[in-house]
Nucleic acid binder design. Structure first.
Lengths: 192, 192
DNA sequence: AGTTTTCTGAAACATTTGTTTCAGAAAATA
DNA sequence: TATTTTCTGAAACAAATGTTTCAGAAAACT
């Protein structure tokens, strides 16, 4: 004896994510969001909650997508070294072709200090990427394709933080060739 | 036959910079700003201009401070290699001790896509640091303290973008030891 | 089909936003 | 000191913000 929610919450969150991604948390207004989501604010507040909650879910969703992407890479059957190389090259590709770069990085700088719940999601996302990289690096060392004279944990942290600077560089200089050269240098350095 | 501006524009801009630095452009309200600057909004609009103009000047000021800092380093009389090492270690220090990290990085991610004038200031700031690093790297190569098998330009870009990732890492993980280890690894890699 | 519960749309809400107004105080010149 | 110009403080402005309200439409159940 009741009605169901009409709109697709998943599709709506996806749209909200895109708006936050482009405008940032403070730059996105409720009207920007509900317009993109194609729902009324009453529906939003009835089902999802307020702006912060919507934002949290948007970031969560972004992290979920990345997790899936990483799992797909692990199931590709390629060698550890090649998975790493692909991961780096794909990062370069995202940086130089997608309009808004990486949402996690952008949000870390905007609300990492102020929104504890979002910061926790971003930290977990970073931790997951870290484990992914550490395990691959370990395997690549055993394969003999990466020099084994450093701890995999250190290298994983180092990798993980490297792309962030490339994002910033591309925002400022819009020079894709520059990013590709840095990536090439990076790969050369770690290859045995 | 006229009155002079009462408040110190330089001190006020400094205060505005601090507010923007902490809260971001969209997160800082005019009332936040004028309260910190200890001036009335009428004075602000009479002398400096609107919020965007104040923001531009704040970022400009930040860039000026960095320029001065870099010039001071060049005049220190130390070897190119040591100036580089100090620069890296000081960056680590800023990341792990100052509450709000680097303003230029934060703003690049928040408004780099939307505010052309600010983006230009940030780009010039980045270019200046680039030249500083490139020249030092060239000198260090001539000194023989850095391996000369890469182009100084590439290494300068690579350096310049490296700290950014460390900032993000510290925001998420608040692990100073992690940053110091990455910096040590970085220094070891470039040292001959 | 009737009942009941829930969702939706439009409008309204109180605050906060960036900005402007203006009367009076302040000070630099003559 | 008188004059004139300009700055300052407080208040007001319209527009935008995040959020709530509520009447009616919609649909799941009996």
């Amino acid at each position: 004896m009741a009605r169901n929610v009409e709109f697709n919450e998943d599709q709506a969150t996806q749209k909200a994510m895109e708006v936050f991604w482009e405008k940032g948390y403070n730059g996105a207004s409720l009207r920007d969001l509900t317009e993109a989501m194609k729902i009324n604010s009453s529906s939003l507040y009835n089902t999802i909650g307020d702006k912060q909650e919507l934002f949290l879910r948007s970031v969560q969703r972004y992290a979920d997508d990345r997790k899936k992407d990483i799992k797909r890479r692990l199931e590709s059957g390629k060698s550890a070294f090649n998975i790493l190389i692909d991961y780096i090259n794909d990062a370069v590709d995202v940086i130089t072709t997608k309009k808004n770069g990486c949402m996690a990085v952008k949000m870390a700088f905007e609300v990492g200090h102020t929104d504890k719940r979002v910061a926790d999601v971003l930290k977990a996302d970073s931790d997951f990427a870290f484990s992914f990289l550490r395990d691959l690096i370990k395997s690549a060392m055993e394969e003999g394709s990466i020099a084994a004279d450093e701890e995999p944990e250190l290298l994983a942290d180092y990798f993980n933080s490297t792309w962030t600077g490339w994002y910033e560089s591309y925002i400022l200089h819009k020079d894709g060739e520059k990013i590709r050269r840095m990536a090439q240098f990076f790969i050369k350095q770690i290859s045995k």
